[in-house]
């Protein structure tokens, strides 16, 4: 069980670093969503299922979807390929 936690914590570190290094905003939001996916498993392993449910509902659900919609509002939805037009 310990190795499982180490792998998940390593996953979180990789997720956090790759969010900041990704150029495209859309890509960082998707990786942010996977960060909150794994974060709720860790809450379960820490014996607190209520926090896991809130993390699941808020982290993956509300925040990521609101980020998508804000991206549309500020017209920053660009693929890398389209920038150099």
């Amino acid at each position: 069980m310990l190795i499982f936690e180490y792998i998940l914590l390593g996953f979180l570190v990789v997720c956090a670093i790759s969010v900041s290094f990704s150029k495209n905003l859309l890509n960082s939001i998707l990786i942010f969503m996977s960060y909150s996916l794994v974060m709720s498993i860790i809450w379960i392993l820490l014996e607190s299922p209520d926090l896991a449910i809130t993390e699941a509902a808020v982290g993956a659900g509300v925040t990521s979807l609101l980020f998508f919609v804000t991206l549309k509002k500020i017209h920053a939805m660009r693929e890398e390929g389209e920038e150099d037009e």
């Binding site: 896991a52 993956a60 979807l65 998508f68 939805m77």
Partner: peptide, 20 residues
């Protein structure tokens, strides 16, 4: 929690495809 994730990953796909 598992059920919530099923719905959220579906919702995220729908919202993102429509917005994009």
């Amino acid at each position: 929690i598992c059920l919530i994730y099923a719905m959220i990953s579906f919702l995220a796909v729908v919202v993102l495809t429509r917005v994009y």
